[in-house]
């Protein structure tokens, strides 16, 4: 997966939450490498994505969605209009 596959809206949303530049948002980015992506921030990300794209994640899946690529994949599975 390349950077271009991340929709601009998701890239900007994540950049605002992680306080990073949009260009820094790559598919490989994950909880282990982003310093402030802790469990609280993760909940913030999940809620923001749910609200932004009108989807609901299964709470049991939420902890596993720990990288940008996994989030995007789950969003696509839910049929979100990206």
């Amino acid at each position: 997966m390349s950077n271009e596959q991340i929709p601009a809206s998701l890239r900007e949303l994540l950049a605002d939450i992680f306080e990073m530049a949009p260009e820094q948002i790559t598919p490989e980015l994950n909880m282990a490498v982003v310093e402030n992506w802790d469990s609280f921030r993760h909940l913030q990300v999940i809620l923001a994505i749910e609200g932004e794209y009108g989807v609901q994640f299964d709470p049991q899946r939420i902890p596993d969605l720990s990288s940008v690529a996994l989030l995007l994949e789950e969003l696509q599975k839910k049929g979100a209009a990206l």
Binding site: E12, L13, D16, A48, G51, E52
Partner: peptide, 11 residues
């Protein structure tokens, strides 16, 4: 008031 707008304003 979608989340992206709020996050943008907050940051």
């Amino acid at each position: 008031g979608k989340p992206a707008n709020v996050m943008f304003c907050a940051s």
